[in-house]
Simulated assay, not measured.
Amino acid sequence: MTTAPASLRLLGLAVDAYKKVFTNPALSPPNPVRRSGFDLEVAVREVRAEAHDVVSLTLARPGGEQLPAWRPGSHLDLFLPSGRQRQYSLCGDPAQRDRYRIAVRRIPDGGGGSREVHELRPGDLLRIRGPRNAFTFVDSAPSYLFVAAGIGITPILPMAHAAGSRGRLVYLGRSRETMPFLDELPGDCEIRPDDETGVADIPALLATAAPGAAVYVCGPPPVLEAAQRCLFTLNPTGSLHTERFSAAPVLDGHEFDLTLARSGRRVRVGATETTLDAIRRVQPAAVYSCRQGFCGTCRTRVTAGEIDHRDRLLSERDRLGHMLTCVSRSAGGPLVLDL
């Protein structure tokens, strides 16, 4: 019997330690996406009208270099000329490494990011971070049902093409004029504009998914909430994957007082209001992006008070004295923020 050299024994111990830390969910950091991706400068190659109030941007490296690879469901952080940071799903072909494509619907009463995107022109330079993925496409499901509503088609479109014959796509919208990428859909896609077929019955639609199907839903809150209420009753062996483009409603909230230490201003946070929204009442320029607790843009230092952490990004260590104001709030009593 021979004894392995000391160097090999050490290598084996290192591999065992790696497996324990990085493949054991109980020990791995609870982060669904990378905290930061690739930071790159890109140029707007093309701006194209895709539907009423929807434009697509094709982005490329100024020197023509390849862009980082991505998988269906990925998004980019886009840094706009004003300094605003927003996140948009990649909706092009992952095989085309020389370009990225995003699509943005203009929201007249939004935070200004979509309006600014609609003002961009070919040749404009932007900074991006990513790709990152918080809406993972599981490519091993026996079958798929994709439900995209409106601009929710953007992350779903690459998934539907990747699923091929195993997938079925149902595309909802107010009217065909408001629905982008109608000319790029898989051949067997069901197009259901409200003005032609009526408002979709989401439970009835989800009931058509095969047992064990992976069901992907992206669209406005009423569509997502209906899917979350009924899928597992209708299809106990299926899996539900959702992505929203707006902030989730505040659940189990309570009012609390907030002090912004640098200015001394005080504000009352309502029971159904996010900490970020309360801050923006007195500091409209407060930075934010995802409003769902996973990008970290609104991370703020807390100098006093107990935090009810509701984010999906920060590790336990990072949560000591910091919070993401878009979702987290007081655990009881007032908070003092370094703002």
Rank of each mutant, 00 (worst) to 15 (best):
His161Gln: 12
Cys218Lys: 03
Ala162Leu: 10
Asn235Thr: 02
Gly152Pro: 13
Leu169Val: 09
Ala162Asn: 10
Phe181Ser: 06
Ala214Val: 06
Arg176Ala: 10
Arg176Glu: 14
Ala148Cys: 14
Ile151Gly: 05
Ala163Tyr: 07
Thr237Leu: 13
Ala162His: 08
Asp188Phe: 02
Glu243Arg: 04
Glu184Met: 05
Gly187Asp: 15
Pro180Glu: 09
Gly219Val: 14
Leu182Asp: 06
Arg244Leu: 11
Val215Tyr: 00
Gly187His: 06
His241Asn: 12
Pro222Phe: 06
Gly238Met: 05
Cys218Gln: 04
Ser143Arg: 04
Pro186His: 06
Pro158Tyr: 02
Glu184Cys: 03
Ala200Gly: 03
Gly173Ala: 09
His161Phe: 10
Gly150Met: 07
Ser175Glu: 08
Leu145Gly: 01
Met159Gly: 07
Pro221Arg: 03
Leu182Gln: 12
Glu184Asn: 02
Asp201Glu: 12
Pro236Lys: 05
Ala226Gly: 07
Glu225Cys: 01
Phe146Lys: 01
Thr178Leu: 11
Ala226Tyr: 04
Arg174Met: 03
Asp188Val: 05
Ala227Asn: 03
Arg229Met: 11
Ile191Thr: 15
Ala209Phe: 06
Ala213Arg: 00
Val223Lys: 00
Arg168Glu: 14
Val217Pro: 01
Gly152Arg: 10
Leu231Lys: 00
His241Thr: 13
Arg174Phe: 02
Gln228Met: 13
Asp201Gln: 12
Arg168Val: 07
Ser140Glu: 12
Val215Trp: 00
Ala141Trp: 00
Asp139Val: 03
Arg168Gln: 15
Gly187Cys: 05
Pro222His: 06
Pro158Lys: 03
Ala214Gln: 13
Asp195Ile: 11
Gly173Arg: 00
Leu231Ala: 02
Phe146Asp: 06
Pro142Leu: 01
Ala160Thr: 09
Thr208Met: 07
Ala160Glu: 11
Pro211Phe: 05
Pro211Ala: 14
Leu234Thr: 12
Thr178Lys: 10
Gly150Lys: 01
Pro193Phe: 08
Ser165Glu: 15
His241Val: 09
Leu145Gln: 00
Asp188Thr: 11
Phe232Gly: 08
Val217Gly: 00
Asp195Trp: 09
Ala209Met: 11
Cys189Met: 02
Glu225Thr: 13
Val147Gln: 01
Ala227Val: 10
Ser246Ala: 15
Gly198Phe: 10
Pro193Asp: 12
